[in-house]
Design a protein around this nucleic acid. Structure first.
Lengths: 193, 193, 193, 193
DNA sequence: GCGTAAACGAGACGGTACGTCGGGTCTTTAA
DNA sequence: TTAAAGACCCGACGTACCGTCTCGTTTACGC
């Protein structure tokens, strides 16, 4: 990290990379994901189309990279020693990360998984399982402490959490907020215990 | 229904309507929703494009109509007098209706809600709230009987159910099955009571 | 001719066809053949690119069709009974037909024969041999009358005529004019007899 | 020549120059001039694009340089004291120089004159008039000896010769050969005298 | 029955975006 | 300073579909 092996030739332009991500986000805000086209991104970013295709294989991968940057600070599952506070912290953080454009970004990316099966695999591998693993880790620790009933499947609990979360982002009128984080935490704790 | 007011002129071809729906379903099965285009539907259905545009305004509305036909038998919420059996029947039915292509149809339609805000409203009004209302009705009856704790929000319960359901359809590797119906019923009952 | 066999479907737009030819000619006049692109033609003609590709396979074929329209009035070799007057009439007509844009059109088409071997065959078959045949016919009649020496190859004479003509159009500063028509007629008559 | 003024820094690579010319010729032979691109030349020559742009301003100039190398041995008009033998020697040499790729090289260069008016001027100044001048010189000497009729324009004679020559190279199926050289010599002598 | 009128299949139309190729320029490291 | 390498911005390519618009044809109904 930092020290990329570099041979001859002009190096990749970090400026272009960020202009592409920023343009994509602005387009989603303005016109929705349906109005995001590679040509529009290129035009707004002041970048050639070829530069985009050199580094991303579709508009969905751009959106995914933007989403990943928004989630990059949430790399570590919380560990306070108690299930309840771990769960509350995790859900508050996650829901906070889904504010504003990020909700639309997630919607866009999930939409694309329905249009392109190859991208669906990428999304699951690169984003979804990473998020699920954090919750899994946290629950596993709690189970070791006896805070999760043995009869409950952790994967099912995780499905419930991410299911409701995605549902709110995709189909509900209102974005998930702090109140919702607590409501969901309550539900999870009740199902666990 | 049945007695449409009809003036002069050739009447709508039921044969064409069904050919369009069937072609759409076959295309989704073969190429995924990304490969569904109006031109491909028209070609495969042996129908003119104009005929499609005369009766539907987008590929998403065709998919939605196909989905509605699949769900048309589930118009009535079960009423057995007990929350548990109502819930189990409802979820078994719903999950059964989401087998095969219907899962992909739902995925396609949800994807489109992310691309087209106008269609999102149509989908919510014409499909989603209809399904939610059945569950709501069922839960309300249970609440009147004291089977649902007053502190629990019915809408939240409904979000949980449809959230997990959609999540499985959209993002999980495996379709929801009978086992999953029982697991989800258990969870709902625990959250209610 | 006139009665084209027509099946179902919207018929070809003659308006679009002429707009394309006219736009191509205007672009050649303005920017030279190097500035003629399919996109520029489509834009200036107010026509979709697909419409162009439906009827022509390259910009060169458009130029060729425009050239053919300019030469469509010269379908018949002159026959006055004397070689001299036949030759003079033929060359005056031909050179007159090469005035203005038509010279540039011919240059463009010949340039393309050097870039695209398939088009070279089309050009020879559809345009060049047609023009050569007229001169050939005229010379053959003269030979029957004894006005062309038996030792002279008609094909060589034709090469000389079209060679000089093309050379003037392609590489000389000045277009061929009436004076040049007489000069070339003189030379041809001298070589023939 | 030979002693170029050279400042500091790495000198121009003669190896690169020849690799570029050779690659261009091979590409013309393989794919025709239409397949000659700067990128293809650079790749095949194992040379950076910038190196090409540093020394040539377009693919046409590369082709022109290759053509000039092929004609570099024909710098002097023949002078045998007789028009006939001068003409025959000149045309044999010229036609010999147009064998193989060189014919395609000439076609390529002439094609480019139709696409790029600036290059047309360069081609005329740097190549065409040089060749014409040799023939002009030869004819002028003959005229001084009384072997060319005063009524004949030398420029017209030269147009005829180069016209037919180019025509054969550009548009005829067969390259000009030795027999053609004699046929053209005969015609020129007849027109002169 | 016979004209009117709407829906039908076919397919061309003006467009937008696609993903690719190549142009000519710029920025690295190596010689 | 030149060279190879390769990323940069840009313009055009030829294709796929969009949604609309004629065509000729088919099928009901109302006079």
């Amino acid at each position: 990290m930092g020290l990329e092996a570099r041979g001859p030739g002009r190096p990749r332009s970090e400026r272009a990379r960020q202009a592409v991500l920023a343009a994509t986000i602005r387009l989603i805000e303005t016109d929705g994901y349906g109005g995001v086209t590679i040509e529009a991104i290129a035009a707004r970013a002041g970048v050639g189309k070829q530069t985009i295709y050199r580094w991303w294989s579709s508009r969905a991968e751009i959106a995914l990279e933007a989403l990943e940057e928004a989630f990059s600070s949430l790399e570590q599952a919380p560990d306070s020693g108690s299930l309840e506070s771990d769960v509350r912290v995790f859900l508050r953080r996650t829901i906070a990360a889904l504010g504003g454009v990020n909700a639309e970004l997630l919607g866009a990316v999930i939409a694309e998984t329905q249009l392109d099966r190859a991208f669906a695999r990428i999304f699951r591998a690169r984003f979804l399982t990473r998020q699920r693993m954090q919750l899994h880790e946290l629950l596993e620790r709690a189970r070791a402490r006896g805070e999760v009933m043995p009869s409950v499947s952790l994967d099912f609990l995780i499905d419930v959490v991410f299911g409701v979360l995605c549902y709110r982002v995709l189909l509900a009128a209102a974005e998930p907020d702090r109140r919702f984080a607590e409501e969901l935490s309550d539900a999870l704790l009740r199902l666990a215990g």
